[in-house]
Write a protein that binds this DNA or RNA. Structure first.
Lengths: 340, 340
DNA sequence: TTGAAAGCGCTAACAC
DNA sequence: GTGTTAGCGCTTTCAA
């Protein structure tokens, strides 16, 4: 199944010249006579010669490849990030090697080894939910290979980080509901083991506090998918004084909430306003369209890659690592226009 | 920024032995004394030696890397495919290099060159909407590098193909509407330059024909996203005799159709039944939930990669290429329960 | 049991 | 202007 590819030697032999002359001719080295250059170019074209990137990598100790370790590819946010990574890498002439950890720590470790073996020049990582120690990632630092964390943080490693300001986002979402006239705002929150979920809850609390709305424990339920959103909302609606606004930790949960509200014969946004947190291309196709926090996954990927390439190409030894927060913004749609 | 990595030579020098001995010791070659072996392994561990995959690739002319060219990563279906690819590749010890063409032909050409340069051992391609000639891909065939097309076909190339049976799917969708009692079925179709769009249309026609429903040109409009779906549906509703069923080329288009139907004060499924074609996690969260064709993207990716690896590792010269069709199935939800 | 040497494809310093 | 040589990191004959 393998016919090996065209090499510089093949061209050299065919033309009766040396490999180095071919090499120089191909890069239009001024020393080489026009005649030889033309002949080489013509033959290269004809044979569809493609320089062997593997040989070049070995020679130059530069692979022009960056590695990515990501928990899951099938996830709107993560795939947006990958898209941003790929676009920036492409423009800068880098290749991208993507590994999916499937949220398994063991696989993350293997992925790291693979990328190390393949001599990636830099690496972008979003750790699994399981990951709690990071020796496998420290290897990169030790070898001077730039490492950048995105979205999910890994405490205790000297590295750059590109994160979302989740607390601020939770704050913005809640404040918006307050400004829309809601008095009793509930929050459907994510698992408190995840920093991002904790931060969003914390932003919610801060907004209430600033508006002098007392925090009500009954209004905070754990729910982070469509079904759980439906269920939790049913419970909220059965309270003596049900909420008139809900901030959900992601869009699917928000959509579940809307569904339960409809099923109860009530209306969103009139009776209960809803704000979600983007987790897909859902917000503008629901009925009503969903006010939601935009997470800018693409931007996260592109910013991370820009910084990574800057690190790769920088000569400096001592680097001050940055924590970069991607600003989220609230996109106001129909589900929160709550005019009481 | 670069401290070069540990090599076999480093270990050899440190231990005062030759590189070849280290190499053999590392693979537990029986010739090497237990003592040397132990010492080498210990030091390799200590220095966290990782074999240089680049050097190995050059030496063996085997990169253990497969290339992927995909139109867009941020797309539920495509990201599912990637996930399937990555999982199978990982299990088989292959790396994956992903390139996104962004639906641009020029970029697809560059991507192909990059992957060729990087000496991928096989390649999976889904061509752009623009692609109409494929010399850049024929290069792979010419060099004996297995090439497999997935989802989108490229006519006139000798290669394996993993496709969805789009005609059958279009047929199933339309037949379902007929069985649900629809008499006037419209189709919102994709660009006819894409085989998949053509096939779906063709399945639609076949179902009509079988049911002795005359084909009506007015009922076929081009629309393949949310906005276009809304617009095209408005036009359909303005016809003298509007349809009572719509088969849309993808889910977003179907959801756009539902929106326009609602806006017109009509009801889905009562007035007009709708069937979509899966393009996301939308179908079960819409109101009403959407009857849709399930495309099995993950399976497409994993099957394609299995076949690709089989091709890579096969010694045979003459290969009979296969067209593999992934079976789709219709998932019936609320939007098509059309009881007149 | 180990070492020396050649070669995978390419480039660049050094000849001539 | 062009050729020779060495070397990137590794493996594998061949020789000792």
């Amino acid at each position: 199944m393998k016919k090996s590819q065209v090499t510089i030697k093949d061209i050299a032999k065919e033309l009766g010249i040396s490999a180095s002359t071919v090499s120089r001719a191909l890069k239009n080295h001024p020393d080489i006579s026009q005649k030889t250059r033309d002949a080489v170019h013509r033959l290269a074209e004809e044979l569809n010669y493609q320089p062997n990137a593997v040989a070049l990598s070995l020679k130059n100790s530069r692979t022009r490849t960056i590695g990515v370790i990501i928990p899951e590819i099938v996830h709107y946010f993560f795939s947006s990030v990958i898209s941003g990574i790929e676009d920036v890498a492409y423009d800068a002439g880098y290749n991208v090697m993507i590994c999916q950890s499937n949220e398994k720590f063991e696989r993350e470790v293997t992925n790291a080894q693979t990328l190390l073996s393949n001599r990636v020049e830099g690496i972008l990582v979003s750790v699994t939910k399981e990951s709690d120690h990071f020796d496998h990632l420290k290897q990169f630092i030790k070898r001077g290979i730039p490492l950048i964390f995105f979205d999910r943080d890994a405490k205790g490693i000297e590295a750059d980080r590109i994160l979302i300001n989740d607390k601020m986002a939770g704050y913005k979402a809640t404040k918006h509901l307050i400004e829309a006239g809601c008095k009793r705002i509930a929050h459907l929150c994510g698992p408190q083991s995840l920093t991002i979920a904790k931060e969003r809850l914390s932003g919610y609390k801060q907004a209430l506090e600033e508006a002098n709305i007392p925090f009500n424990e009954e209004y905070v339920l754990s729910a982070d998918d469509f079904e759980l959103g439906k269920k939790a909302t049913r419970e909220l609606l059965n309270l003596e004084t049900p909420p008139d606004g809900i901030f959900a930790v992601n869009d699917l949960t928000a959509i579940g909430a809307i569904k339960s509200i409809h099923n109860k014969g009530m209306n969103t946004p009139k009776d209960i306003a809803i704000v979600g947190f983007s987790s897909g291309r859902f917000a503008d196709i629901t009925e009503p369209t969903l006010t939601s926090i935009d997470q800018h996954g693409y931007e996260m990927g592109s910013k991370a890659t820009e910084l990574l390439i800057k690190r790769i190409e920088s000569e400096e030894e001592s680097i001050v690592h940055e924590d970069i927060f991607i600003e989220t913004n609230l996109i106001i749609r129909e589900s929160s226009i709550h005019n009481k």
